[in-house]
């Protein structure tokens, strides 16, 4: 019988080990030539996170007054002069009180009837605001604010929320004091079953619902508590094409036997592909006007060019206060085709 020599044994064991587990356990230093050391300048450029204990916060300062100027130039177009706008995103400011500053719990969050939740109502730590504005705002030009500018707009938002006075200057040396005034600083609960680690971050509990897999006579009756409201039946465009026209079922409203029909009008297909039909019905208003209404309105006018530009750039005010977002990915020629098709009555077949 062949005998392993003593020196041969460990070599075999080592060679086999990586195959024993699904993930190869190759020790560090083994990936020769893979990756390189990061330079200090590179780390400084990308390591921009600021934690709730303010680790990572750069030195700097900015006043409410400076913040207001930056706000009006770089933020107000989307968030409103007072951070109250709902047009592009939910309001940033509002819903907090002097009392909340004392308690650290925003009282309005308990009220089921309170409409909406602003950023200031929810955010518990000031680091979150600082870090986020620094990395991501202005939305269309992120990472363009200087550190001092970030301090200043944060100070302005705090002032709008009546947390700091008009003559306040926020800085790395007083930010921990201001943290103690955040209206919802005590508003986070870490008691739940939904953190995937055991790292002591949450006070882990068992899952908070306990259904059983009962198989028969589980309850006396099945009561329907809610049905689809009428307005919601058409709010997501025509349902018929949203189910495949053959197979077990059809989409509601589909013409029977529709699978035998020729494919859609190519312009209709383009409208669907371009996402127009999510907001426009052929014959009904959804978020924007029905295409029939658009055709009616511009009948006999030479509006095609103007409308194609509007489709590309977006716009508001002709049909109401809801804006049409810019369709930036839409080709000019497609915008023209679509508008021509709409003005011709938007035929689907």
């Amino acid at each position: 019988m062949f005998k392993f020599s003593k020196s041969f044994m460990p070599a075999i064991t080592l060679a086999l080990l990586p195959f024993a587990t699904t993930t190869p356990s190759i020790a560090a230093d083994k990936y020769t030539g893979v990756g390189r050391a990061a330079t200090p300048a590179e780390i400084q450029a990308w390591d921009i996170d600021v934690r709730p204990d303010f680790k990572g916060l750069p030195k700097g300062s900015g006043s409410v007054e400076q913040g207001q100027v930056i706000w009006e130039n770089k933020c107000a177009s989307c968030h409103g002069t007072f951070g109250e706008s709902n047009t592009v995103f939910t309001p940033l400011v509002g819903g907090t009180t002097k009392d909340d500053v004392k308690t650290g719990n925003v009282a309005n969050l308990k009220r089921a009837d309170y409409p909406g939740r602003t950023t200031m109502m929810k955010v518990a730590s000031l680091s979150t605001l600082w870090d986020y504005i620094h990395r991501a705002m202005p939305w269309n030009a992120p990472k363009t604010l200087s550190d001092d500018e970030v301090y200043a707009v944060v100070a302005y938002l705090l002032n709008l929320s009546e947390i700091v006075p008009d003559d306040f200057t926020l800085s790395d040396s007083n930010i921990r004091e201001v943290q103690k005034l955040m209206p919802n600083r005590n508003g986070m609960s870490l008691k739940h079953a939904m953190w995937p680690g055991k790292s002591g971050l949450v006070t882990a509990t068992p899952p908070d619902t306990k259904n059983t897999a009962c198989m028969s006579n589980c309850k006396p009756a099945a009561k329907v508590s809610s049905t689809l409201p009428d307005y919601a039946k058409t709010s997501h465009g025509e349902l018929a094409p949203q189910t495949r026209p053959f197979g077990q079922t059809r989409g509601q409203g589909a013409a029977a036997g529709s699978s035998a029909k020729p494919a859609h009008n190519p312009d209709y297909a383009l409208a669907e592909k371009s996402g127009c039909l999510a907001c426009h019905g052929i014959n009904q208003k959804i978020v924007g006007p029905g295409f029939n209404e658009v055709a009616d309105k511009y009948k006999g006018q030479d509006a095609a060019a103007k409308l194609a530009t509007k489709v590309k750039n977006g716009g508001v005010g002709v049909w109401g206060s809801i804006p049409m977002p810019a369709q930036t990915d839409l080709k000019d020629s497609d915008a023209q085709t679509l508008v021509k098709w709409i003005l011709s009555g938007a035929p689907t077949q």
């Binding site: 969050l109 950023t119 929810k122 955010v123 870490l190």
Partner: peptide
């Protein structure tokens, strides 16, 4: 890290006004 999307969004509001975080 308490980042925006784990401190302002992706937090679950409970009936008592507390948000479950993480």
């Amino acid at each position: 890290y308490g980042t925006k999307d784990e401190a302002v969004h992706y937090i679950d509001l409970m009936p008592d006004g507390q948000h479950r975080q993480y």
